[in-house]
């Protein structure tokens, strides 16, 4: 398992390849990449700053991956989240899950993203033409995480 909170960009292909290198038991790799959009809530976004809680962030990401491991056949996983200043088109987050079969890989990847959105301590601040603003949490993200309960 690889968890990284970093300012540098990541290489999706290299991260996917790293999960399967030297292994022949993995049959499926699912990945998700989140990027900075140039608009949000009706305003243009020129850039964004991502703040996090060092220590708790890494712990919560590791816990989320562990929870996914308990639910699905996750053979390995990588979560990379960028912090600092980002611009539209930049990568923000990468989740890669390796499994024997696609069902587990897809489900675990979506679960990790849904939980990351609602549990990992990151905060986005956007710069728009009207000034800077902290992004509000979305109820749709809470509902997405809720669906994995029960």
């Amino acid at each position: 398992m690889k968890i990284s909170v970093q300012s540098e960009d990541f290489d999706v292909g290299a991260e996917c390849a790293a999960l399967t290198r030297g292994r022949t038991d993995i049959g499926a790799v699912a990945s998700f990449v989140g990027l900075v959009r140039d608009s949000n809530d009706g305003a243009g976004v020129a850039r964004m700053t991502l703040e996090h809680y060092p220590g708790m962030t890494e712990k919560s990401l590791a816990e989320i991956v562990e929870e996914a491991r308990g639910r699905w056949d996750v053979m390995d996983a990588t979560v990379i989240h960028r912090v600092g200043e980002l611009r539209p088109g930049d990568n923000i987050v990468l989740v890669v899950v390796a499994s024997a079969h696609r069902g587990d890989a897809f489900a675990a990847c979506e679960f990790i993203m849904d939980y990351l959105k609602t549990r990992a301590p990151f905060w986005k601040k956007e710069k728009t033409p009207e000034g800077e603003r902290w992004v509000d949490a979305r109820e749709s993200d809470d509902r997405a995480a809720e669906k994995w309960k029960g």
């Binding site: 991502l50 996090h52 923000i92 987050v93 549990r119 301590p121 990151f122 905060w123 902290w134 949490a137």
Partner: peptide, 23 residues
């Protein structure tokens, strides 16, 4: 993450923050 009735002890680290918005 802790509830408001969580007890505190010497040396604890307590953080206050808004709902998270990463990803």
């Amino acid at each position: 993450i802790a509830a408001v009735d969580a007890p505190l002890k010497d040396g604890d680290e307590v953080a206050f923050f808004p709902p998270v918005t990463g990803g």
